[in-house]
């Protein structure tokens, strides 16, 4: 029994090492930014919102933006192209958002390619995260 408890404790500790509060995800982008830009001060909320709301025609000729699936309101539920409901993006209404850095990186990679036909830079991810955290 004691062994199980210890294992459980170790397991939970291991999980908690990878799960962050949304602020911590932003800190990861901040730290990374400082490595390449020593004079870096902070990310821009306005720039982040611009990334979310910019509409463009992608390489497939479709008019796309983050809003295509997330809607214009980041606190609302969205819909994928296969009609699956997307949980709200803003951490203020969905506590699971921006808590797992692997998940955050995975979706930035996929979605930036879909909307912008390229991967986003660390600077862009930082702006975006700063903005989504500011949505109350």
């Amino acid at each position: 029994m004691k062994k199980i408890r210890i294992n459980l404790f170790l397991g939970l500790t291991a999980i908690s090492l990878n799960v962050f509060a949304a602020d911590d995800i932003l800190k990861i982008f901040v730290e990374k930014e400082k490595q390449t830009n020593p004079s870096f001060k902070s990310f821009s909320v306005a720039e982040g919102e611009k990334i979310f709301r910019t509409e463009r025609v992608n390489s497939k000729g479709e008019k796309v933006s983050c809003m295509t699936c997330h809607t214009s309101n980041p606190k609302a539920e969205g819909l994928t192209r296969a009609n699956k409901v997307v949980e709200p993006l803003a951490p203020s209404v969905n506590k699971e958002r921006f808590t797992d850095i692997a998940k955050v990186e995975k979706w930035f990679k996929r979605n930036c390619k879909d909307v912008y036909d390229r991967e986003c830079t660390n600077t862009e991810k930082g702006h975006f995260t700063a903005w989504i955290l500011s949505v109350k």
């Binding site: 497939k60 479709e62 192209r81 990679k109 996929r110 979605n111 390619k113 879909d114």
Partner: peptide, 10 residues
């Protein structure tokens, strides 16, 4: 998967 029905699902 990088071109999964028009989306990146890698």
């Amino acid at each position: 998967l990088d071109k999964h029905f028009g989306e990146d699902a890698s």
